[in-house]
Design a binder for these strands. Structure first.
Lengths: 213, 213
DNA sequence: GTTAGCATGTAAGGAGTTACATGATTTT
DNA sequence: AAAATCATGTAACTCCTTACATGCTAAC
């Protein structure tokens, strides 16, 4: 699953961009965010954090919590983004191209869309939509070729998969429209109206993937 | 993604159960079947086939195609299931438990549902549904805790995710009803009525049951 | 005082992708 | 005759999970 590492990095940068926190919480937020399927393990997160530290994308602050520090408190570590980290975050967020709209990557980028401007958002949303449409075409053309005796259950699975992706496309279309018709996107505090009513669905577990994560 | 290996094996056994074929075609069918996300590479498939050969789950037949075989034709290899392979397939298909309803595994099992009986099907479908419902609960409870200032896009992503899983649950409920109300499942050739349709005879006491499109 | 959840890590190992390497057959 | 697609493989490498190991802190 090659390209996951970058994804985690981006997510970490994005979360720390909002507020400093420590590894444990980072993991929780991450799992909530992209955790519809597999869950990120500590064995994956902590090494990534160390790596990012070495690359100076983030910094750590050790806290000893209680004032009268006895001796050997194992310190809790709070991470913050550095300036370099912020720049890297911005660089990654303004990337347009396949890496931005592949399954895992897309979700993370979307979650932090507030940190980019509309142009980028539109391009990513459209790229993603095109990606899914290609997928649909490919599958549908292949299906018509193989159309020999299709097993009932296998066919139902396919049907459901197609339906899910189609719904996802509709969702994206709704979002694209909302962006274009300038849904107020500035941080006018609360009362955020639903971005758009469009129905939706990611191909969740069923068609073989929870593309999201 | 640890548990994928078994999944591939099951899929291979299932496909070869239907008809012998060679690796290349196996890969195509596999990708069509569970290929909504990542695609299975040769570097993954061929080693698996070798391993299954060693385990005597499948057998190979070398074909030289053209009658007047010159000399050094690289042979094409057609794979078939052995008896041991068939038994293994049946064993795996009648497993009920977590391994049967986790994301990837579920899809494969579902695709080959025709090879099991209704009891198993029902248990797997119900297990899967429960799994997803737990997921929803977990996410929703966590969301209510974190309900501080949620970013608009992040919130929309969550909303969409929840909606997708809810739809999946409805889909499963429909299938469960269909199984219970005995949708004719034997191979009465074509004119197979959509699995899904199944209007329940009695006004289903279960609220969840209604969904049926 | 003990369980449950917070918190941080490491080592070993498996699974699968990428990139490479080769060749046959069919279509244009 | 070239291009596309069918077809089979291997080696290196990355990523990530599993399982282990440790210890603090709050609640019951």
């Amino acid at each position: 699953m090659a390209r996951r590492a970058e994804t985690i990095e981006l997510a970490v940068l994005g979360l720390l961009h909002e507020a400093p926190m420590h590894g444990y919480e980072l993991r929780k937020r991450l799992n909530l965010m992209l955790g519809w399927g597999r869950v990120l393990s500590y064995g994956s997160l902590y090494p990534t954090l160390k790596k990012m530290l070495r690359a100076s994308l983030i910094e750590e602050t050790l806290s000893t919590k209680t004032p009268g520090t006895p001796v050997s408190k194992r310190p809790r570590i709070t991470y913050q983004v550095t300036e370099a980290g912020t720049r890297e975050f911005e660089r990654l967020m303004s990337e347009v191209g396949p890496t931005a709209w592949e399954d895992d990557n897309f979700d993370i980028r979307f979650a932090f869309f507030s940190s980019t401007d509309m142009e980028i958002r539109l391009r990513v949303l459209e790229g993603r939509r095109t990606r899914l449409q290609e997928r649909l075409e490919r599958v549908q053309s292949q299906l018509s070729l193989t159309q020999k005796e299709v097993d009932r259950y296998a066919a139902e699975l396919q049907r459901h998969g197609v339906e899910s992706v189609e719904r996802e496309v509709e969702w994206l279309s709704g979002l694209i429209n909302a962006e274009r018709n300038g849904v107020p996107q500035q941080t006018s505090n609360e009362t955020a109206p639903a971005i758009h009513g469009a129905p939706s669905t990611k191909p969740p577990a069923t068609p073989a993937a929870e593309q999201a994560k």
